[in-house]
């Protein structure tokens, strides 16, 4: 197992280096650089200003040279300076990571807490009224666009009823626990409702498949109770494909949810990464995207380890 983990750690490192170059090159290949964008906001910039600013920002250097300089800084623990926010990238990233982890983590836990039991319940009584109702709710959740759902929730709970704030992270001058919770309710509800359907459907299909297996029939024939059959025998097997999906979803916890964050003016990683890519903010975009990549890779590693725990037939050498 230790050898396996060591090899995977090396793989992760190699993937990160390759990804850093690919991301840097792709942003570099996008038309327009930060100074080109500055020109559009300031018609008074002269040709001399443009040449001078490109030199100040180092944009006049070849792409490869800029990438190597960035890599050197990263190895020294310097994530660079964000051009869009005029702050060190790490100063911008850390609070956003926390915000995204809170938003996405809460909705992730809620979606699993509701979706997995719902999937199990539906699988236990296929084609029953309960199964149809759960399926209907799942498809509704999957089909509704999150921006529309977010807008409806804002209109009902913030505008019409006035119960909850329409957006933001916290009330200025407050920021207490209750205030933070109030600001979280609607974005969490949007994300949870949008993702429950997928987990429920995965769980239902994996559980239905597991319940059809011979060992389940054997367990029942041996007199095992329904609860034991479902939770001990079937669930453990059904969890293997579900764990893969959950692990992949885990990576998004730190990469944020662009649409939900935009609709609720929630300062998270999704909006930050999008803005930094569109604004040609290399340092910030790279730090954000590489962190999301790292979390996804680590989550997949955790999933591989979980397979061995769930299914003793799986071993790693």
């Amino acid at each position: 197992m230790i050898r396996f983990l060591g090899l995977r750690a090396v793989e992760i490192l190699v993937v990160l280096v390759i990804m850093s170059f690919v991301i840097y090159a792709l942003i570099g290949l996008m038309p327009g650089d930060p100074i080109d964008l500055m020109i559009t906001a300031n018609p008074k910039l002269t040709a001399a200003d443009i040449v001078r600013l490109k030199a100040v920002y180092g944009i006049d250097q070849p792409l490869m040279g800029r990438y190597l300089a960035w890599l050197r800084n990263i190895l020294q623990g310097d994530l660079g300076f964000s051009r869009l926010y005029s702050q060190p990238s790490v100063t911008i990233l850390l609070p956003r990571l926390g915000n995204s982890a809170l938003l996405m983590g809460t909705s992730f836990v809620l979606a699993l807490a509701i979706g997995l039991p719902a999937g199990i319940a539906a699988a236990r009584r296929p084609h029953s009224l309960l199964d149809h109702a759960i399926n209907f709710a799942c498809f509704a959740g999957i089909s509704v666009p999150s921006f529309w759902l977010a807008l409806m929730l804002i209109l009902v709970f913030a505008v019409a009823l006035g119960w909850l704030p329409a957006g933001g992270l916290a009330t200025i001058g407050d920021g207490g626990f209750v205030d933070r919770i109030q600001h979280l309710v609607l974005p969490v509800a949007t994300l949870t409702l949008a993702s429950i359907g997928g987990y429920t459907r995965f769980m239902r299909s994996a559980m239905a498949e597991a319940l059809r297996q011979d060992f389940i029939r054997t367990a029942r024939a041996k007199g095992a109770g329904e609860r034991r059959v479902v939770l001990h025998h079937a669930l453990r097997n059904a969890m293997i494909p579900v764990v893969t999906i959950v692990a992949l979803s885990f990576g998004t916890l730190f990469s944020g949810a662009l649409i939900t964050e935009t609709m609720f003016a929630y300062p998270g990683m999704g909006k930050l990464i999008f803005d930094s890519v569109m604004g040609n903010d290399y340092n910030l975009a790279l730090a954000g995207l590489l962190f999301a990549t790292l979390v996804t890779l680590l989550a997949n590693l955790a999933a591989d380890v979980a397979y061995a725990w769930l299914d003793p037939r799986i071993t790693y050498r």
Binding site: L151, I154, L155, A158, V159, G162, P165, A166, G167, G168, T262, M263, F264, A265, K271
Partner: peptide
């Protein structure tokens, strides 16, 4: 001064008193 990029959200904040 609040930065709210989406204009639908901007309108909702006006209407909700935010």
């Amino acid at each position: 001064i609040y930065a709210i990029e989406n204009t639908a959200a901007l309108e909702a904040n006006l209407l909700s008193g935010g």
